[in-house]
């Protein structure tokens, strides 16, 4: 059962990824990305991480992509998007394929068999998150967000 669901969502993810890459209109690309994110969220859940799955939808699909759409609307991006040169396409394709093959050689068969079940509830995650060393990283991240906040305001400001 889970396997079937997994492959369905996997196919969905790949398909919408191709939409992201292939679509001319950036708005359509954004929508494609949202679908990909939601599919991935489902896969996260299937892999036993409910907390992250929810986080994915709330933060990524809910906040970041909305931000993307805001900017797209703000900048009034139309449908035009010229194509790249042929050489660039070929080289990029070759390299990407090479990378994929190499990584495949590494990853496939690298992971051990999964543990029967493990407790991945929110409480368990919180336990790990709020103890050393991730606690310090957590605090540092808050400063990071503050910096990003200030930075984005300053950068996007229109000079008076």
């Amino acid at each position: 059962m889970t396997a079937i669901l997994f492959y369905v969502f996997a196919a969905l993810a790949v398909g919408s990824a191709l939409v992201v890459v292939g679509q001319r209109n950036p708005i359509y690309s954004a929508f494609g990305l949202i679908v990909t994110l939601c599919a991935l969220s489902a896969i996260f859940g299937l892999l036993g991480s409910p907390f992250i799955a929810v986080l994915q939808v709330v933060v990524y699909a809910g906040a970041i992509m909305v931000l993307f759409l805001f900017v797209l609307m703000l900048l009034g991006v139309g449908a035009e998007d010229r194509k790249s040169g042929r050489t660039l396409k070929t080289v990029a394709a070759v390299l990407a394929a090479a990378l994929a093959l190499e990584m495949g050689a590494v990853l496939v068969g690298a992971a051990p068999a999964p543990v029967a079940s493990f407790d991945a509830s929110t409480r368990a995650v919180a336990h790990v998150l709020f103890s050393a060393p991730y606690l310090y990283v957590f605090e540092a991240t808050s400063i990071l967000i503050l910096a990003a906040l200030v930075g984005s305001i300053v950068l996007a400001r229109r000079d008076p």
């Binding site: 993810a13 993307f68 396409k89 990407a96 990584m103 990853l107 068969g109 992971a111």
Partner: peptide, 28 residues
């Protein structure tokens, strides 16, 4: 599901990398 998940991850990464080079719109 781990193995297929890894393969999926690989595929998505490769597609993303391809997209970085092929698209001309910064936001894309």
């Amino acid at each position: 599901l781990v193995q297929p998940a890894l393969v999926l991850s690989l595929a998505l990464f490769a597609i993303g990398a391809l997209g970085v080079f092929l698209r001309r719109n910064i936001i894309t």
